[in-house]
């Protein structure tokens, strides 16, 4: 039997109740699908005395489209998103990213909100209590130094959510609720390039909703490719999402985002430079260079960081070329 630390499980029925419970506690964590959080709690990570379960909140189950676009509650499961015909049609990159998470049984309960807020990962962090104790902990938890970059003053644990880059290229906005009210911000604002403080959420805040702009009328293609050793279960060694539109053989819009390489998902900047151009081999090389410059994996996985960088660079270029080719066809 696995010995979990003691905690109280709160199971509120409404969002308001959840926020009220949270407001009454000094310390608590929200739990939804639990596939990341419980795995960590089992290893003595992310300790908490209170878990507030969100999967029962109907507000977070909202999943509907209107003229403004698509609205996905934070507790909607990755399986629902990955199998949804409309998402597959209009937001293919999101369906692909959702379906690339872990295995099917994980995705049946894992939620979009949970995946966005997925804890950063590192070889020296995602280990048992005994293991971490034997290694004097690490900067992220119960220790002083970063074992990946020992001279560093910051933690380099890697952001490893698959859906974030997909939602970034779709220009998603999220709604955040907390004891002090709710706000709506671009998804970009959720993340912070730090392995420890990787989210900008204030204490007690949670992501409640993902808003996607209405599907583009122009010819758009989007896709997600994941670098991993096995074709199931594995977290991304790197992942890249790309969305392109094209008219008359010329790029009219190009968005790219990368996960798994840094402590934050990376929205690749400088993609505007390709607008109006034919994405030929030369432009492809330039695009690859952009990705290369903006991603900086370190040894947070057993797979070598240099490789992860080279591979994600090559994958980005091929993915974009394939999308444009599909649009042309």
């Amino acid at each position: 039997m696995e010995v979990l630390p003691e905690f109280k499980l709160h199971r509120p029925g409404t969002l308001a109740e959840a926020l009220k419970i949270r407001g009454s506690l000094d310390e608590a964590r929200y739990i939804s699908g639990g596939t990341d959080l419980l795995a960590n709690i089992r290893r003595g990570l992310t300790p908490t005395e209170n878990l507030i379960e969100l999967s029962g909140l109907s507000e977070l189950q909202r999943f509907e489209a209107d003229a403004d676009g698509l609205h996905i509650g934070a507790a909607v499961t990755l399986a629902t998103i990955g199998n949804d015909p409309a998402i597959k049609q209009d937001y293919a990159v999101l369906a692909e990213a959702a379906n690339a998470v872990a295995g099917a049984t994980h995705r049946a309960v894992a939620t979009i909100g949970g995946n966005l807020c997925l804890d950063t990962r590192c070889l020296f962090y995602n280990q048992s209590q005994w293991w971490r104790d034997s290694n004097d902990g690490c900067m992220k938890y119960e220790g002083e130094i970063c074992h990946v970059v020992p001279t560093s003053k910051r933690c380099y644990a890697a952001y490893s959510g698959d859906t974030a880059p997909a939602l970034l290229v779709l220009n998603a906005e999220i709604e955040i609720a907390g004891p002090d009210g709710s706000r709506r911000v671009p998804l970009d604002d959720l993340f912070n390039d730090d392995g420890i403080d990787y989210l900008t959420l204030a204490p007690g805040e949670m992501v409640t909703m993902v808003h996607l702009p209405a599907a583009s009328k122009s010819k758009t293609a989007s896709s997600y490719t994941k670098l991993r050793i096995r074709d199931s279960i594995d977290f991304p060694l790197a992942g890249v999402a790309v969305r392109v539109t094209q008219e008359n053989g010329k790029v009219t819009a190009l968005d790219a985002a990368v996960t798994g390489t840094n402590s934050t998902p990376i929205r690749v900047t400088g993609c505007d430079a390709f607008v109006g151009l034919e994405f030929d081999e030369e432009q492809g090389q330039k695009f690859a260079k952009l990705v290369q410059k903006q991603t900086s994996p370190v040894q947070t996985t057993t797979t070598k960081p240099q490789y992860r960088r080279r591979a994600v660079t090559a994958m980005s270029k091929t993915l974009t070329q394939n999308l444009l080719q599909a649009l042309s066809a």
């Binding site: 696995e2 596939t35 419980l38 290893r43 099917a104 049984t105 994980h106 309960v109 048992s128």
Partner: peptide
């Protein structure tokens, strides 16, 4: 030690669940 093998899968309301997570 948690969610990595699937041996604990059961059905909850008909859906496959990892009972260890």
């Amino acid at each position: 030690d948690g969610g990595e093998c699937g041996a604990c899968t059961i059905l909850a309301d008909g859906g496959a669940r990892l009972s260890c997570l």
